[in-house]
Design a protein around this nucleic acid. Sequence first.
DNA 1: AACTTGTTGCGCAATTACATA
DNA 2: ATATGTAATTGCGCAACAAGT
Lengths: 200, 200
Amino acid sequence: MSNNPPSSICMFTPQNPTSLSPDGTLPVNSDSSGLTLNQMPQMDGGLYSQSTGPQGFPKTQDTRSMEQMMGFTYPPYSTCLTSSNTERASQQNQQDYSQFLLPPPASTLRLPGQKRSLSKDSIEYRLRRERNNIAVRKSRDKARRCVQLTQQRVLQLQDENHRLQLHIQRLSHDVDALRHYLPQRHLQVKEQDIAGKDNC
Amino acid sequence: MSNNPPSSICMFTPQNPTSLSPDGTLPVNSDSSGLTLNQMPQMDGGLYSQSTGPQGFPKTQDTRSMEQMMGFTYPPYSTCLTSSNTERASQQNQQDYSQFLLPPPASTLRLPGQKRSLSKDSIEYRLRRERNNIAVRKSRDKARRCVQLTQQRVLQLQDENHRLQLHIQRLSHDVDALRHYLPQRHLQVKEQDIAGKDNC
DNA sequence: AACTTGTTGCGCAATTACATA
DNA sequence: ATATGTAATTGCGCAACAAGT
């Protein structure tokens, strides 16, 4: 389990810039765009649960239509849906499989550097897929939130920027006014020497 | 052709905040996150073109195989793998359904509000798919660039912010110094009246 | 109205990042 | 320190829409 902080940081982490696959081939994922946020305000709780695949297997052609028909639209956060149905199914789904889980014992003969290839019909395969699907949804959700956060940050910074500029404007005005009130010229000069070049 | 500027703007365009499907149901895509950049530095030219698959081949299965058979591989990313089995399953799967999917092949009678459904085997279907795939790649590319741009903007704003704060610091210092040099108290007071409340 | 392009959520598969035996 | 398993990322294609012509 372990819930310790991952290493990647939300914004601008370059992250394996020249990543190559272990076999030396160019990796399929050559993009990455360096967006790997973390520490996002997300309650890692029950969301992302079993997604719909009630009977997931034959999975007709696309599931999407299925999901929608079942009203399972996955509203990232808040507003949570009232997933009336579907959860039952998914829940049970898990259980159903759990008992069959771990068929490998029989044929455990696979070469060291070889990762076992699962049959697409196998329960295990489906379980892995489903888990990954959940992870994918979670990850993308996180990415979306990060983007939004970044955008908010821009607005916020622009705002602050504006405030600062106004402040500068006022201060500049003050300085001018004060200089104007200085009785002796030499003092002004002295003052300017002290202040240096503010007007950049 | 017309290459005029689209309406959406890159950052923070709210854009259908309460979007609902025409039928009043909640739209599947309720996300959108208001990211709809435009005017991105993209040469809209030959990129995203036909995906020049010189000899695209046995990519895997899963429809993709079709694309390759037709010479549609789209190299942009990938170097594709060489998986193996499984093509049978998904392929057949698709076909199985496809025959049920579109009952009216020869008959062109489709009700007013009904969009014709193409056979997954049809050339037309493949062409549409391929066009959409290109559009998708293009769109995502745009989104990626927008995100990067936004991130850059944050850095840039942070930097400017810092500069402004330094400037304020110097100006404040100047004001203090000048005030110190003011010979008479009443002048200071007067000055403050003029300047108003700078210290917010 | 019909068609084309643009967006977006989703699932898949390959890869990577972590964690742990 | 290494082998192995799981979670996280990411490009890709699909389908449903939205938007634009």
